[in-house]
Every structure is written in structure tokens, then in C-alpha cells.
Design a protein around this nucleic acid. Structure first.
Length: 103
DNA sequence: ATTATGACCCGAT
DNA sequence: AATCGGGCCATAA
């Protein structure tokens, strides 16, 4: 039996180190479904188990941060990222500095 | 089974 | 830099 889509997403996101981020696209590629980037967000929205799965470290490919529980708690996502040392330039972050480089 | 929705991505304008 | 449009995919109804 193969892991469910959800399981793959969560298990990978849990490995993102503090102070680093990955894009929804990266997650999609990593779990072997490069075209499922959009569905990744749908999964994280469902039941991230907030503190356990660091879903706040998943951002958009253009440097914007994306959402957090719909459009409601984005401020909290920003706060968590700032708390980890990530700086914002307007509405975006510098992916060249914070992107987690996979091996 | 079919439709609509959304924490997305990318190329073209 | 900002906007638009088409593509993709898991879920919910």
C-alpha cells in the first residue's frame, strides 16, 4: 500500500529545518507529483496540526508567503517566520537566502 | 459521475 | 513590476 497523498506531504514538511522554507512546488516535486503543487495547499489547509507540522515554512515560488488557514491567519504565519529570523521585503521574502536546498 | 473551489505555477502581455 | 489566462490536482458537495 502506498502512502496517501496527505501522508507524503506531512512527512516531508515535518523535515523542513527552522529558519528555512520550501515552495509548494518543491514539495510537489519531492513527493513525486510535480504537477500537484496546487493540491499541496489544499492538504495543508485541511489539518496541518499547526505546531507539529511546520506548514508556515511552505511558501509560494515567487517569494510571497501564500496563505494560512484560508485568508484569516496569515499574520500569524508571518509572525512565525519572522520569529525564525526570516526578513520580509514588503510582501515577499528572499528565496535565495531562505530556500531549503534539497540534496 | 460531474462541478466548483482554492495556502499554486508559469509563460505571455 | 503588475496582470491575465490556461493548466493541474485533491476535496467537498
Amino acid at each position: 500500500m502506498s502512502e496517501s497523498f496527505r501522508e507524503k506531504v506531512y512527512s516531508f514538511v515535518k523535515q523542513i529545518p527552522r529558519g528555512k522554507v520550501v515552495t509548494y512546488k518543491q514539495v510537489a516535486v519531492k513527493i513525486g507529483q510535480p504537477k500537484s503543487c496546487r493540491a499541496i495547499g489544499a492538504i495543508l489547509r485541511a489539518n496541518p496540526n499547526a505546531p507539529y507540522v511546520p506548514c508556515h515554512r511552505v511558501v509560494k515560488s515567487n517569494g510571497e508567503i501564500g496563505g494560512y488557514f484560508g485568508q484569516e491567519k496569515i499574520s500569524q504565519k508571518i509572525l512565525l517566520l519572522k520569529k525564525e529570523g526570516i526578513k520580509f521585503i514588503g510582501k515577499k521574502i528572499d528565496l535565495n537566502n531562505y530556500l531549503w536546498k534539497l540534496k
